[in-house]
Simulated assay, not measured.
Amino acid sequence: MPPASRPKSVTLQDVARSAGVSPMTASRALSSPELVSQGTIEKVRAAVEATGYIPNLLAGGLKSKRSMTVAALVPVISVPQFLPTIQTLTEELDRAGYQLILGQTGYDHGREAALLNTMVGRRVDGIVAAGLLQPGDAAKRLARLGIPVVETWDMTDRPLDTLVGFSHLKVGSAVAGYFLSKGWQRVGLATADDQRAGLRREGFVSTLGREIPTATVKPPTGVPHGRRALTELLHIDPQLRAVFCSSDGLAEGVLTEAQARGIRVPEDLAVFGFGGADFSAHLNPSLSTVHIDGAAIGLHAAQLIIARCRGETVDQRIIDVGFRIIERASTSSPPR
């Protein structure tokens, strides 16, 4: 649209003129309604509706030094395991008057740093990250400016600020213990090559006490990656008995490839996932997995970031939500 034909922005003065009040009274009716009469509030709101006025939140934020926005960074928006966290985080922030800005890092450290710098430039009040933020200039800037940060979906004893998560090392070790309890010896691993999946692999292999066939794929992982991973694992060991997958999506692909090859699950091959995605219970056979309470992570993260944004003291800086192993048909002993 040419500049000359652009519609003129409606200002607070236009609203005040339409309501028959002063600009100061109109401003108070919108930002501090307790200071004016109910009749004035109704007149100003009617004027807002009639004129199509949109308040300049940035200008208000510059005055109060608060933007009432929180940024959330996730590796990939479409990954099912992060969705309950983002949904709960959004709902809890909304109840407290904050809006969420979502950014996707794509498992790229450079992209993460660029997003952090952009969010700081946008004057967000706080940042929630799925995973641990990478050390570097961007993270140092957050600490220097005192911007509240909640790291999630991981565990460390030295978070940048606060943390809600669990140990991926312990997840891998627990799954290995489950495999050992079943007596499975010829086992393999289908895993993404990101940092958190690497920790699960480390815990799994360490508890088993030996190296195992491993198929590594690029995240985000899904059915095609799982099919290729099982093909690779069977090429390494045609007598493979069980597979631990770094995501439920990857495990779904392993199940699909097994069925295409006529391999029975769990009679011939046991398949185990990670993440506790909703669809895992509805696959055929249903998928054994490590369940993570993503909604609880979102709730705790919201409570921490709201408290920190308000300048309140946080007694518990690190919250471990733990995890649960859920056994389903894909690893259970078949009936006689």
Results as ranks from 00 to 15, higher is better:
residue 26 A to W: 01
residue 130 A to N: 08
residue 152 T to I: 01
residue 253 G to V: 04
residue 30 L to Y: 00
residue 311 G to F: 05
residue 282 H to L: 12
residue 107 Y to T: 04
residue 82 F to K: 05
residue 59 A to K: 06
residue 298 G to K: 02
residue 262 G to F: 10
residue 199 L to S: 11
residue 60 G to E: 03
residue 21 V to T: 10
residue 63 K to F: 07
residue 113 A to T: 09
residue 64 S to C: 01
residue 154 D to L: 02
residue 298 G to P: 03
residue 43 K to M: 11
residue 293 D to E: 12
residue 150 V to Y: 04
residue 79 V to Q: 14
residue 92 E to D: 14
residue 149 V to R: 00
residue 131 G to P: 04
residue 9 S to F: 08
residue 304 L to T: 01
residue 86 I to M: 13
residue 109 H to S: 13
residue 38 Q to V: 13
residue 78 S to P: 00
residue 150 V to M: 01
residue 193 D to C: 12
residue 62 L to P: 02
residue 333 S to H: 13
residue 286 S to Q: 02
residue 308 R to Q: 15
residue 323 F to H: 13
residue 30 L to W: 03
residue 121 G to F: 06
residue 304 L to I: 08
residue 320 D to I: 00
residue 80 P to K: 04
residue 267 E to L: 10
residue 162 T to L: 01
residue 205 V to G: 00
residue 182 K to V: 01
residue 197 A to S: 15
residue 151 E to I: 05
residue 55 P to W: 06
residue 77 I to G: 00
residue 279 F to A: 07
residue 257 E to I: 05
residue 71 A to T: 09
residue 236 I to R: 15
residue 327 E to I: 07
residue 172 G to L: 00
residue 111 R to E: 12
residue 80 P to D: 05
residue 191 T to C: 11
residue 55 P to G: 03
residue 230 L to V: 07
residue 277 A to K: 03
residue 45 R to P: 03
residue 56 N to V: 02
residue 90 T to P: 00
residue 83 L to S: 13
residue 92 E to M: 12
residue 56 N to L: 03
residue 217 V to M: 12
residue 332 S to E: 14
residue 313 T to A: 13
residue 48 V to Q: 03
residue 273 G to K: 00
residue 307 A to L: 04
residue 146 G to T: 09
residue 136 G to A: 08
residue 9 S to A: 15
residue 306 I to A: 05
residue 329 A to S: 12
residue 5 S to I: 13
residue 263 I to H: 08
residue 163 L to Q: 09
residue 76 V to D: 15
residue 312 E to K: 08
residue 203 G to Y: 04
residue 64 S to G: 04
residue 14 D to W: 08
residue 284 N to Q: 13
residue 144 R to E: 15
residue 229 A to T: 02
residue 96 A to E: 15
residue 261 R to D: 08
residue 3 P to Q: 12
residue 72 A to T: 12
residue 158 R to S: 12
residue 132 L to C: 02
residue 70 V to L: 08
residue 126 G to T: 06
residue 93 L to N: 07
residue 145 L to D: 10
residue 186 R to K: 14
residue 129 A to D: 04
residue 195 Q to M: 13
residue 71 A to L: 09
residue 123 R to G: 00
residue 57 L to R: 13
residue 335 P to L: 07
residue 109 H to D: 14
residue 79 V to R: 09
residue 95 R to Y: 11
residue 108 D to F: 10
residue 282 H to C: 06
residue 98 Y to H: 08
residue 336 R to M: 11
residue 290 V to W: 00
residue 235 H to M: 10
residue 234 L to T: 02
residue 314 V to H: 03
residue 282 H to W: 12
residue 128 V to A: 06
residue 37 S to K: 10
residue 275 G to T: 04
residue 224 P to H: 03
residue 230 L to K: 03
residue 167 S to K: 03
residue 218 K to P: 01
residue 131 G to L: 05
residue 169 L to H: 15
residue 122 R to G: 04
residue 233 L to D: 01
residue 156 T to W: 06
residue 114 A to S: 14
residue 281 A to M: 10
residue 70 V to A: 06
residue 151 E to Y: 06
residue 235 H to R: 14
residue 64 S to T: 15
residue 313 T to Q: 14
residue 183 G to Q: 10
residue 310 R to W: 00
residue 93 L to I: 11
residue 260 A to C: 05
residue 28 R to V: 07
residue 74 V to N: 01
residue 271 V to S: 06
residue 166 F to E: 01
residue 4 A to R: 15
residue 72 A to S: 10
residue 277 A to P: 01
residue 201 R to Y: 06
residue 250 L to A: 03
residue 266 P to E: 05
residue 69 T to W: 03
residue 205 V to R: 09
residue 270 A to D: 05
residue 237 D to V: 09
residue 132 L to W: 00
